[in-house]
Amino acid sequence: MSTPIDVLMWVQPGTLLLDLAGPAEAFRLANQALRRRQQPEAFRLRFIGMEAECASSVGLQLSGLEPPPESLAPGSWLILSGCRSKAPDEPAPSSEQLAQELAGERWLARQGQVLLREGGRLVCICSGTLLAARAGLLGRGVRCTSHHEMLDQLRALAPEAQVVDNRVFVLDGPEEQIASSAGITAGIDLSLHLIAQQCGEALAASVAQTMVVYLRRSSKDPELSPLLAHRHHLHAALHRLQDAICAEPARDWSLDAMAARAHVTPRHLSRLFAEHAGISPLGYLQSIRLERAEQALARGASASDAALAAGFSSDQQLRRTRQARAAAGTRPTH
C-alpha cells in the first residue's frame, strides 16, 4: 500500500478561511473518492502554525494546530494560504507577534529549501506567495503568481522571480514543484489540478462535481482539456459515464455500451448529452481518445502505440481523426 503524501497547511493569524478550507476539502474529497474505489488514501492533511490556535480572516477561531515539525518527510507538500490585509486602523503588531512572524519565516526558509531539494512541493495560494517570497523561496527565474492586487508587491519581494499576470495558477520548477495561484477560489482550481496529476483526471473531475465547481486543467490554457470539458452540469448518470470513459477510453464503447453504463436507452443518452454536455456521446468519446493519444505521443510513444492505448483501431485512424480536428479548427493540445 502506498504511503499518503503529507500535505502540511500553514495557518497564521488572519488566514483567509476559503484559501485554507477550499483546498483542504478538495484533498479530503479525493481521499473519500479513493476509499469508495477501495484504493488507499493519497493525502494526509496536517495543519501547522507558530501558535496552537489563531483567528481566521472571518474571526472564526482555528485550534489544534501542530507546531512546525523539525523536518519534513521527503515528498511532502507545503501549502501556504493567503492572509487578510490589515486594516489601516488596526494596531501595530506587538514585539511578540513580530518575533513569531520572524520565527515562522525562518522555519519556512530553512524547511522550504530542504523540501524542494528532496522532491517535495511548495504550493502558494493568494498572498501565500508573498510569504514564500519573504522566506527566499522564489529565486531567479521562478515563475509565480498571486492575487491581482498583490502582484506589484510580489515583484518587490521577489525581484528575480518571473511574476505572471492574469493566470489562475502557475507551475514551475523541476516536475512543477513550485505552484502558485491567484486569489481565494483559485486555490481550489490549483488543488484540483494537483489531484488530477496525482490521482487521475477522472477522480479530480468527480471531486469537482462534488464541490460543484468548474475544473481548470492547465495553467497554460484558459480553455478546458477535452478530459474535463463538457462537464459543467450536475447530471449524475452522465458524470458516471464520463468518469468511466476517461478511465478506460480504449474499451469498446459503442453507443449501446455507453447507454447501458448510464442505465438509459441509447436515444435518451443522446438527448442527455446534447442537453447537458453540448456534444454527442460518440463525439465525446472521440475527444477523450484523441486527448489520450496526444498525451501518449507527448511522452514519446509511437503513433501505433498511442493509437491503440487510446482506443483507435490503428495509427491511420488516429491520423485521420487529428487531421479532421485540425481542419475543423480544433488543434491538438500537444
Rank of each mutant, 00 (worst) to 15 (best):
S2R: 15
T3L: 11
D19Y: 11
P23R: 02
F27L: 07
A42M: 09
L45A: 03
L45P: 04
I48F: 09
S56D: 04
S56R: 00
L60H: 03
G64D: 00
P67D: 09
P69C: 02
E70F: 07
W77G: 00
K86R: 15
A87H: 14
P88L: 02
E90N: 11
S95Q: 07
E96I: 15
Q97G: 08
L98T: 15
A99Q: 14
W107G: 04
R110A: 10
E118T: 14
L122Q: 10
L131V: 15
G136V: 00
G139T: 05
V142N: 04
C144H: 04
C144V: 15
R155K: 13
L157W: 01
E160W: 08
V164F: 03
V170A: 00
S180G: 12
L203H: 04
K220P: 10
L228P: 07
R231L: 06
H232V: 09
H233P: 06
H239K: 11
H239V: 06
D243S: 13
A247R: 15
R251S: 08
D252K: 09
W253L: 09
T265I: 13
G283I: 14
Y284N: 02
I288G: 00
L318W: 06
R322T: 05
A327E: 09
T330F: 12
R331W: 08
R331S: 10
P332S: 01
